[in-house]
């Protein structure tokens, strides 16, 4: 039985009175197979977003702006309206959507090349305007879709297909810390970094996504969740080794933590 038909059959299962469903397919997640590699974090992050959208009961008024990168088909995986931006331009596109649809929940889903390199200007100015949108920033330190080239977030010394000798800070610069930079901007309500390298960290990641959406529901300004994510394929590691790589190599360059949390969010009673 394929996973798809298994899911379908689970849905039709009638629950005996003494039992309850504790784990089900989120309504906000489309019932289609994803194209992601084994061990890739995107699928799990998609599911977390879908769960948050369900929990907040906002599926019918949520819109996703998908990026160019591995998550280019994000719009196929969510069970709500979405559109597909040019590389790096998702924050500009989301701005256009949000200005026309101010009562909708609009978020961009962007990788590190998309957001921190080609789209650095668009995210910077969306932040400066305090655009009340959510930004899910998936940082896996490489350009995944094009085959693992060096990204602005690639750690020093890391070998990629476009830095075969390892990233040399003298000629290729040092990794950009965009979330810390954006946290200095007053238009940003929420800027945090989370990780996908363990179940505990994943739980914290989902909480952060929920808080980011909550910030938008309250109209507080731009909210950004950077997520350290695994790319076993381009890192040339097994899925388990990739999780260790996040913990040992990436988290030292990119420490998880809260860089900005609007006071009104701290006081939010619905903390999960």
């Amino acid at each position: 039985m394929t996973s798809l038909s298994l899911r379908a059959s689970l849905r039709e299962v009638s629950v005996p009175p003494q039992m309850e469903i504790v784990y089900a397919h989120p309504a906000a997640l489309a019932d289609v197979p994803m194209h992601y590699c084994p061990g890739c974090s995107h699928g799990a992050i998609h599911r977390m977003i879908a769960e948050v959208v369900d929990e907040l009961a906002i599926r019918e008024r949520t819109l996703c702006v998908a990026p160019v990168g591995c998550a280019v088909f994000a719009y196929k995986y969510f069970n709500f309206d979405s559109c597909e931006a040019a590389h790096g331009r998702a924050p500009a596109m989301a701005t256009g959507l949000k200005r026309i649809l101010p009562d909708r929940i609009i978020f961009t889903y962007q990788g590190d090349g998309d957001l921190a390199s080609i789209g650095a200007n668009e995210i910077l100015h969306a932040a400066l305007r305090g655009e009340p949108i959510g930004v899910i920033f998936v940082n896996n330190a490489v350009y995944g879709m094009t085959g693992g080239q060096m990204a602005p977030t690639t750690p020093v010394g890391m070998k990629t297909t476009s830095s075969p000798l390892g990233r040399d800070p003298l000629t290729q610069g040092r990794p950009i810390h965009l979330t810390e930079m954006l946290a200095t901007i007053s238009g940003v309500a929420y800027a945090v970094r989370r990780s996908m390298h363990s179940v505990a960290e994943m739980r914290k990641t989902k909480k952060a996504i929920r808080l980011a959406f909550q910030a938008q529901l309250q109209g507080l300004g731009l909210s950004l969740v950077e997520i350290l994510a695994a790319c076993p394929t381009n890192w040339r590691l097994t899925p388990v080794e990739a999780l260790d790589f996040i913990r040992d190599r990436m988290a030292s360059e990119y420490p998880v933590g809260d860089f900005k949390v609007d006071e009104r969010l701290r006081n939010w009673s619905g903390e999960c």
Binding site: A92, M93, T95, G96, R99
Partner: peptide, 26 residues
């Protein structure tokens, strides 16, 4: 109605793109 001075022409046309996706006359 909506007026926004964008950070560049690149951003401006992508804002138009977003607003147009929402069905607006952008």
């Amino acid at each position: 109605r909506v007026f926004l001075q964008a950070e560049s022409e690149i951003a401006a046309i992508n804002m138009v793109y977003g607003a147009a996706c929402a069905g607006a006359r952008a």
